[in-house]
Computed example of a mutant assay.
Amino acid sequence: MTALLDVRHLAVSLPGAGGQVLPVIHDATLQVSRGEIVGIAGESGSGKSMTAQALLGLLPERAQVSGSAVLDGNTELVGRSGRAWRTVRGTRIAMVFQDATAALHPMLTVGRQLTEHMREHLGLDRRAAEARALDLLDRVRIPGGRGALRSYPHQLSGGMRQRVAIASALACEPELLIADEPTTALDVTVQAGILELFDELRRESGLSVLFITHDLGVLAALTVRAYVFYAGRVMESGPTGELLLRPRHPYTAALLHARPHADDSWTLPEDGVTRPDEAAERRTQPLVTIPGSAVSPAAAPPGCPFAPRCAYAEAACTGELPPVTEVRPGHAVACRVLPDLTEVPA
């Protein structure tokens, strides 16, 4: 399958105090095919959001970006100027941010925010833009139609605001949608509805999605392939099912064991009912943690950045960066040891 987005050896550095240059993304390579939802997972500060911002030219001023990120085989994203981004950002690639409240302007109605860039980029008049805005609200299942268009963001619930943000991102029919932890602040029921919406958009319109999350349950429910980031590097990549059930990198395995109730299966029992005694037993089990603290990409030690926290680390792990090894077709691991990890219970 031809990649809609093909990122090769992406590196990002930010200006620091005293003229320092701080590396935050190291040699990231990833692909997203048409009609595919691909996940990026990892702890806070691992470089997930910074990668997304680099792909949209939203990095701070004086940021240094190298490598390549090609959209649809013909549009290089790295090195684009501010004016050149107008033909890509919002039209061919759009982004849904984590905090819809911050992403939406509090002083503008939903209708104004949905129609303004449609009129700018698609050349629609006011009536046509409003008709398309109504269609978008219906598409993301926001009731109320014209009443919703007249509302201000603070008059909507958190879930509705996030749906408005998704509608706004879809307004100019992008080929690729980047979703940066769009369900983090939502309750479980609303979160499930948002995830269902993303999958529905993929099935109905062939939309490609790069979905950033720290929630491995969300990763399992939505994505077909995934990339696990740590300290600005891709530690493991491959089909989501393989990553979650047969991880090969110690960091991926540690994340899986550290999630609450790590002995849970990824699906409910056949009858869909969790027994009270089973739930109570899981609540009494101690949480597993990863030793030490996550390291920032700029402060990563030589060699494998996870080595100081890794139970399988050897002397060679602290000297040179680990090679990237394909352990199965499409499943790659940046690890020198490749220990025999216990399978995550299914």
Rank of each mutant, 00 (worst) to 15 (best):
D277L: 14
G193D: 07
G16P: 04
R8H: 10
E242K: 13
V333S: 06
M50S: 08
D99P: 10
V140I: 13
T184V: 09
L255A: 07
G319N: 08
L197H: 05
F229P: 00
D277P: 06
P15S: 01
R275P: 11
L4V: 09
A254Y: 03
S293R: 14
V333I: 08
H117G: 00
L114E: 04
E236S: 04
C310R: 04
T189W: 08
L177T: 09
S44N: 12
I194S: 00
V344S: 10
W85C: 09
R202C: 01
S49E: 06
L177Q: 11
E314L: 14
D277T: 13
T101R: 14
Q20I: 00
L268K: 10
P339Q: 08
G123L: 04
V209H: 02
I166M: 01
A316N: 11
L170T: 05
E175A: 15
L137W: 04
L136G: 00
P239K: 08
R83S: 13
N74E: 15
D199F: 00
R86C: 06
M95L: 12
A334Q: 05
F198P: 00
A54W: 03
V273P: 05
R86D: 12
D215V: 03
Q155S: 11
A11I: 00
A41M: 01
P60M: 02
P260N: 12
E196S: 15
G158W: 01
A185L: 04
V188C: 06
A254K: 02
Y251I: 02
A298H: 12
D264R: 15
A231K: 02
M235F: 08
A254W: 02
A69R: 07
R139F: 07
I93H: 07
L222W: 04
